[in-house]
Amino acid sequence: MSTTRLLLLGVVRIFQPAYGYQLRRELMTWNVQAWANINPGSIYTGLRTLAKHGYLLELEQDGAHRPGRTSYKLTTDGETEYFSLLRGMLWTVDGFHPDKMQAALAFMWSLRRDEVVDALEARISQLEAWLKSGPYSERQIREDPGTPNHVVEMFRITTARDRGELEWTRQFHERVRAGDYAFAGEPADWEPYPGMVTHWGEIPDPPANQR
């Protein structure tokens, strides 16, 4: 649910104000139905739910409230929630929900470089600690007569994923430190097609607190 919320708030923030069908079409190009387990038909419902909770402002065309013809923009609360979710997913490793880091990568550019560097260092520390404690957890599983022997392989596959993520995080951390990619307040390192992004690399002003 938190991944879906970040994706919806983030894509609205990029295109705002934008119609529901435009947001749905964009998210489908990200293949979110595969890695974030988002049903394409639920995107309109998610947008309306975020508007109901005050995170999005609905702008109806000619007073018509139709899924594809209502445009959205972030409210002040929506901007706050966006950054709260983004930072939570970036700073905290959740090995059982890799979709959270995948979503954070999609919007990491809206943070400043120094914060991203520190967050990646925090992730490295978390992963190193988990891997260091791994042998002891495995020993406990193997020595417990009430635990089936195959359970240790369930633990090992999780450890293998953590080890792979640690290797990638170290390499990504070095690339970011070396100046790769563009972050908030820096010149864009790519050229969006016309009409796609209007504030890439900028730190936008807080939105008006409209509901």
Rank of each mutant, 00 (worst) to 15 (best):
V116D: 02
V116T: 10
V117A: 03
A119H: 07
A119E: 15
L120A: 01
L120P: 11
L120Q: 06
L120W: 05
L120I: 10
E121F: 00
E121M: 03
E121N: 15
E121D: 14
A122M: 08
I124G: 00
I124E: 00
I124Y: 11
I124P: 02
S125V: 14
S125E: 04
Q126F: 00
Q126I: 14
Q126Y: 00
L127R: 07
E128T: 07
E128F: 04
E128K: 00
A129E: 03
W130H: 01
W130I: 04
L131C: 08
L131M: 10
L131A: 03
K132P: 01
K132M: 06
K132S: 09
K132Q: 13
S133M: 01
S133A: 14
S133Y: 02
G134S: 12
P135F: 14
Y136P: 03
Y136I: 03
S137H: 13
S137M: 13
S137F: 14
S137Y: 12
E138R: 10
E138N: 07
E138W: 03
R139G: 08
R139I: 07
R139N: 09
Q140F: 11
I141Y: 08
I141A: 07
R142L: 11
R142D: 09
R142F: 07
E143I: 02
D144Y: 01
D144L: 04
